[in-house]
């Protein structure tokens, strides 16, 4: 039987199953199209820049979820860690100077990640519980810190504001950080030993152990890395929001999980990748814009948001399973 005799629909589903990014990008384009129909003229280079600007922190935070989900875990402390880095940096900057404050902020993030890693890798605590607990502890520490911090005011370094909000030639500056970041992750997940170990541990941990992988080292490195990424997200986010608050990135916690899931990363591990997550974050951002434009009560927007995430994920699983 020659290939021309295969029905078009079957070839299409096979194509989609082999390149899971295609249906996602199609969905994103469809959403943008619907948006344009709803409000003609809204889709402009300026709007696209704005959407990307808002999506960058979400996509970066979703990187924590994607990487940990590849091994079958999750990092629920990411939002808290991002908030801590941003807050610590902003409050210490007037006292110590900006570079030192940034280093200390990121050190806090790495520390939180290492605590997660210790619990998950060495004590074998379920990642959901461990990151939840670390998030609680870290949040408590932040609240205590906030009460004892000397009232010197806060500084948000111009570099971060430039990165978070600025644009050059209509293109958001955040891409200066985000493109290398995303390229590194997408290259790293398939081409480096560590990236492949993530997939291996996620799809079959006993098998990797029998092949001589010390899985605790993988977990420890992974969750520490996740903490660092969350810290970086916090720095970008504070440049975008421009006011340090105690709940800066908390509202991104659940959407970051949703972005990774919509982007096709399996929550059970071993399948997915960061490319899909970026598209997922863009889809969620466009979706939020769309729901805001609908002038619905806040409650109805929440309902639609939840139902659409569910529908997209269910559809996506159907599409990619057939192959």
């Amino acid at each position: 039987m020659s290939s021309t005799e295969i029905p078009v629909t079957r070839r299409l589903t096979r194509l989609m199953a082999e390149n899971p990014l295609i249906p996602l990008i199609l969905l994103l384009l469809a959403l943008v199209l619907v948006l344009e129909i709803m409000q003609p003229g809204i889709v402009s280079p300026f709007w696209i820049g704005n959407t990307i600007k808002v999506a960058i922190p979400l996509a970066m935070l979703a990187a924590c979820q994607t990487l940990t989900m590849l091994t079958g875990g999750i990092d629920l402390s990411a939002g808290t860690v991002a908030t801590i880095t941003a807050f610590v940096m902003a409050t210490l900057a007037p006292l110590l100077g900006v570079p030192e404050a940034v280093v200390i902020g990121l050190a806090c993030a790495v520390l939180a990640g290492a605590v997660n890693g210790f619990g998950i890798a060495i004590c074998r605590v379920h990642p959901l519980i461990m990151s939840l607990g670390t998030g609680l502890i870290a949040n408590g520490c932040l609240l205590v810190y906030q009460r004892y911090v000397i009232a010197t005011g806060t500084i948000i370094p111009d570099t971060l504001v430039w990165l978070g909000t600025g644009r050059s030639f209509g293109i958001p500056n955040g891409l200066v950080v985000f493109i290398p970041f995303a390229a590194l992750l997408i290259w790293g997940q398939k081409r480096t030993g560590f990236g492949r170990l993530l997939y291996a541990v996620g799809s079959n941990e006993p098998a990797t152990r029998l092949s001589g992988v010390r899985s605790w080292q993988v977990y420890f490195a992974l969750y520490t890395l996740s903490g660092l990424i969350a810290g970086l997200t916090g720095l970008i986010l504070i440049g975008l929001v421009k006011t340090p608050s105690l709940s800066l990135a908390l509202r991104l916690d659940l959407p970051s999980v949703a972005a990774a899931v919509v982007g096709g990363t399996s929550i059970f591990g071993g399948r997915g990748g960061y490319g899909g997550t970026i598209v997922g974050a863009l889809i969620l951002t466009v979706l939020t814009t769309m729901l805001t434009l609908l002038h619905m009560p806040e409650g109805a927007r929440g309902i639609l948001f939840g139902l659409i995430i569910l529908a997209v994920t269910a559809l996506y699983i159907r599409l990619t399973e057939k192959g």
Partner: peptide, 21 residues
């Protein structure tokens, strides 16, 4: 839907929260 429990109930979190509002 055959979607993992965590994902389904995460979406329903938004739905029920909206309903309450």
């Amino acid at each position: 839907s055959r979607v993992p429990d965590i994902v389904v109930t995460l979406s329903m979190l938004f739905v029920w929260q909206g309903t309450a509002l």
